[in-house]
Design a protein around this nucleic acid. Structure first.
Lengths: 214, 214
DNA sequence: TCAATATCGATATTTTTTTATCTATTATAG
DNA sequence: CTATAATAGATAAAAAAATATCGATATTGA
């Protein structure tokens, strides 16, 4: 017999949780008490069975003929993702994309708080961008240790990606949100989430070519 | 017996194609003639069998003991994705993220050319951002028809997402790259690719919580 | 109280994706 | 010219995910 690990992978499920959360928060604003999986499914163009199955990963249970308690479900998803209290993060690479992410207020609703940014370009140092201070790369290790920051957001040019990632790892960063297209090599124990825009563009291109190509 | 459609879905495969392309282009720069699936797999931390299987979707064939012709493989992937000649696109919503995307030069290597931007805010109209003109939303339909643009990049605030998407569809746009977290309702025949950052953040959060939580 | 219905949760089935195994081919070395 | 090793490609197996089915339960209205 095999013990059930409290959480197997279920990556597709995890990717859908923020969508549930978004709808649920809106319902909170409208003072709903309960919501059915069927309703969530309709809002998100998903299958009701899939919604219910996804929600089980958080441990929440619904009641027949009633649905799920809205507040409890929000709490369960947030707890599952660790979004109740914000994770502090560094952002490295204050280019177009890095600047945009620094200015995105929505992260705070997603348990993420960017506390400092870093860049190799001296011209960008010591100015604040969207209220966040920008430091030279050399300060990463020192600040990471002092502020106990463990997450890094990587928005540097492709050519610098691996070197900066190495620097983050040395500084004790254990989670990297990688916006470069580079497949980073990191030691075990460091988790990396790749966010390569070209993947999505490829899917869209393929769909488009297939939709009108034939 | 069942006919093989020339391309079944194979979405995960399609998402990996840009990564192969990136490595292959680098090899082109170093004047490699051939490359083995094994080498590509190493570079991208993938399984060699998966690489070979993925590449078959493009129709490219390799030769034993040699591998794949680099130039031919690049051409095959680009042809499969329709990236040989650029698709022209509109971008709607010139906020932080929209501005960043307007400034991203890499799209041109991915068969995408943003030809115009749109925004609801009068203060943003009639200025160029990263060399791209910004027009009011009202001009979408007219310009889409005249320039025969079929792809729209959606970077508006969540609250405006569905309305703007509707406007794009009316204007004849058939492909929407959706950077809002909204599950858009669109008529059949319109392809939508969602690029919700919070999905990736959720995965990273779950991995992180799981890595040190236990 | 009782029947009807909406809804959850569990189980089963199908589909998709990944991984493994095996065979055939071809460049290279002897 | 032959043996060997690296590699593609096909087939099969395993794992993961999506989808369907069914029984149980709680609310509603008669």
């Amino acid at each position: 017999m095999e013990f059930e690990s409290p959480k197997m992978s279920r990556l597709p499920t995890i990717r859908r949780l923020p969508a549930y959360l978004r709808v649920l928060r809106q319902l909170q604003g409208e003072a709903w008490e309960h919501v059915s999986g069927t309703y969530l499914a309709e809002q998100l163009s998903l299958d009701p069975v899939q919604v219910r199955k996804d929600l089980t990963i958080t441990g929440i249970v619904g009641t027949p003929r009633v649905g799920f308690m809205v507040d409890d479900t929000v709490a369960a998803i947030e707890a599952f993702l660790g979004w109740q209290n914000a994770t502090e993060a560094f952002l490295v690479g204050v280019g177009n994309l890095g600047t945009a992410l620094l200015g995105y207020a929505g992260f705070e609703r997603h348990g993420l708080k960017i506390v400092a940014a870093f860049d190799a370009d001296p011209a960008k140092i010591d100015v604040e961008i969207h209220g966040k201070p920008v430091y030279p790369l050399e300060k990463i290790a020192d600040l990471a240790a002092r502020l106990r920051v463990r997450m890094g957001i990587l928005t540097v040019p492709e050519i610098a990606a691996q070197a900066v990632a190495d620097r983050l790892v040395v500084a004790g960063i254990t989670a990297i949100w990688n916006f470069t297209p580079v497949a980073l090599k990191t030691p075990g124990g460091v988790v990396v989430q790749n966010e390569d825009l070209s993947c999505g563009l490829a899917v869209l291109s393929a769909k488009l070519r297939n939709a009108d190509g034939s």
